[in-house]
Design a protein around this nucleic acid. Structure first.
Lengths: 366, 366
DNA sequence: TTGTACGCGTTATCAA
DNA sequence: TTGATAACGCGTACAA
């Protein structure tokens, strides 16, 4: 059933490569890097003027600036970030802490951050907290040691120590992914509770009577979404604790199928589910197909995040669209604005969300 | 059809936050960081000894070492990486260049890299080349400016300039994702051509007669996979140029549906497809369901990478499993081994692949 | 507009 | 085993 293939790497090849590498090492020794002083000598000015030409071109006469640029070009000068950081007492690093790098939600956020930071003199440095506040605290200390110009951290549930570190950090801080009345400095995100509220209302408005919820990776945001579901279900008299299936396990399509099966065994009359994310929703859909349960007639399915695949599925899947890339972009823009001195236009930004209704919750023929 | 909700942020709230922030700024001023000298004074030794105690504990007597550690603890000393880098003339940064941070293939690789680098003194710095060799070259220069201890770059198709930079770089280099007879230094990956060969053979062995291929984001690796498909199809007399639908566009589930539709309009008799990745395969499956084409009876589908969802789909989807996380881990291990001086056991490592046969290519019952 | 003196916090070298 | 001294390459403060 399985076919496996490996390429053979011959021993002789390895030896050969090794010999070549030694030769390379010798070449690497003449790796002299020109310094500011070298450029200065070449351009016949002082090192200070070169430094200025680089950072405040306006304060250097055009003629000398041209000479300097020519010298830089000729020597192939590249500034030494370490020396700069040491002298200036602050680096051009923007530290970013996310709970996961594989979760596509955060990939999108990271992408957004990169896209606006890319054309600035700032460097992005990522840290992966693995959803652990303790890890986050450790990362924070590491980052702080690098004298960053700014910090972007995920969520609002930092440990007290982390909060304290962030509050007295000598740099600007942006919290992302959520909204909160009391941000440490700046914040951009949306209300997870409200978005679940809107999604649950959508399900009930479509005529489903026995809604359930599937949730995994119960981080603070997932919990707030469950809260939103509970609120609406309770308000409308549709609350059934049994119909909420949660697990701290990592979310996945496979898990979505398992949770769906779980739910059906506990509450067979369930006719709609709100999933904590799109992977679970897709898994639930497959499980329904496997069991011959018709979607959306017998089971309404709503996901969360609106990943690209949701629109392409058959039936297409309803989801709550979140603006992940936008969060990353906005956070970085706010930070840059704050750094530029003009101060950001706002300290808090809500990027909102949208319930995107598709076939999977279209109970009433439309 | 759509519901949209925004949270209101009151103006008064903003002002309030702004005032608080000013107060914080004042606090931030007393942000004194103890230095080596401070620790030295506290422990009543010289700065040099403290520095040694940190990096080569064995060369400091146990008694002084204890005094020093106590002082470090008491003062909350954190080494300054910039100063260290400047003095040592090399940083503890490992630069990593990937073509995309949202593509889950590279997320997995990044995760693997992190997982082994996390407990070392080295810092991972990512760069996103956006599949552009020019961007890659630019990133390379930036990284090189940081005097990294090691570089991990994706693929083997660097520009000549990039290759030259890497060859004379004063640090170790690991190329990842592919195999090649002439790596710059070290390399870990697998043969994309061979993996496509194995997958295509699987399709034909299952009894499919008119195989086609769907491919997007035609990067060098995608092209090599198409090559593998062509080779086997030709060998077995099943080659039809029309049946290969390619596009340089970014891959997605939606695109998979479109490409499938394209293929069916060009070559309606197609009875199996090899997809360049799993997103395309999933989209193709949905497209078949939409059209009432039975999988695997009327259409065999094989994806590439074996993302988690493939096993959970209905019908479950055949795919070529690739060891992405493993590539990241191995690359980092090789680098660490090389840095530790003992030299890596091997300069090239092939992580292989596996064709995971599932329902979607099970033409013959059994 | 340009330059001088000095310090940033650490490590390498050599000596004790 | 420990310490003194001199870099490392650049930016700040001030002066010219």
């Amino acid at each position: 059933m399985f076919a496996q293939t490996f390429c053979q790497v011959s021993i002789s090849r390895i030896c050969c490569v090794h010999k070549e590498w030694k030769a390379n090492l010798l070449k690497k020794i003449d790796n002299y890097r020109p310094t500011l002083a070298d450029v200065a000598a070449e351009a016949d000015v002082s090192a200070m003027t070169v430094s200025r030409a680089l950072r405040e071109p306006g304060r250097v006469s055009e003629e000398t600036r041209n000479r300097i640029n020519a010298a830089i070009e000729k020597l192939g000068y590249v500034p030494d970030p370490a020396a700069r950081t040491l002298a200036a007492k602050r680096s051009d690093i923007i530290g970013v802490i996310v709970p996961s790098v594989t979760n596509s939600v955060f990939s999108d956020v990271m992408n957004g951050i990169y896209s606006v930071a890319e054309n600035t003199p700032y460097q992005i440095q990522f840290g992966n907290s693995h959803y652990s506040p303790i890890e986050e605290e450790r990362l924070l200390r590491t980052f702080l040691g690098q004298k960053p110009v700014g910090l972007i951290v995920s969520g609002i549930d930092q440990t007290p120590t982390s909060k304290a570190l962030l509050e007295k950090a000598p740099c600007r801080v942006v919290q992302i992914m959520e909204t909160a009345p009391d941000p440490i400095d700046m914040i951009v995100g949306f209300s997870h509770r409200d978005s679940a509220v809107a999604a649950t209302r959508h399900l009930l408005d479509q005529g489903y009577k026995k809604p359930g919820m599937l949730a995994a990776r119960m981080d603070p945001r997932a919990q707030r979404r469950v809260e939103g579901f509970r609120q609406v279900a309770t308000e409308r008299g549709r609350w059934n604790e049994e119909a909420v299936v949660m697990t701290p396990a990592r979310s996945s399509v496979t898990l979505g199928g398992h949770l769906m099966a779980d739910l059906l065994s506990k509450v067979p009359e369930t006719d709609a589910i709100l999933c904590n994310n799109d992977d679970l929703a897709l898994g639930a859909l497959f499980e329904c197909q496997r069991r011959g349960i018709k979607v959306p007639e017998d089971m309404g399915i709503c996901g969360f995040n609106d990943l690209e695949m949701m629109a392409a599925a058959y039936p297409s899947l309803t989801s709550v669209r979140t603006f992940r890339s936008e969060i990353g972009k906005q956070a970085t823009h706010m930070l840059l604005a704050a750094l530029s001195g003009e101060g950001p236009a706002e300290m808090m930004h809500d990027v909102g969300f949208e319930v995107i209704a598709r076939q999977s919750t279209q109970r009433r023929p439309g």
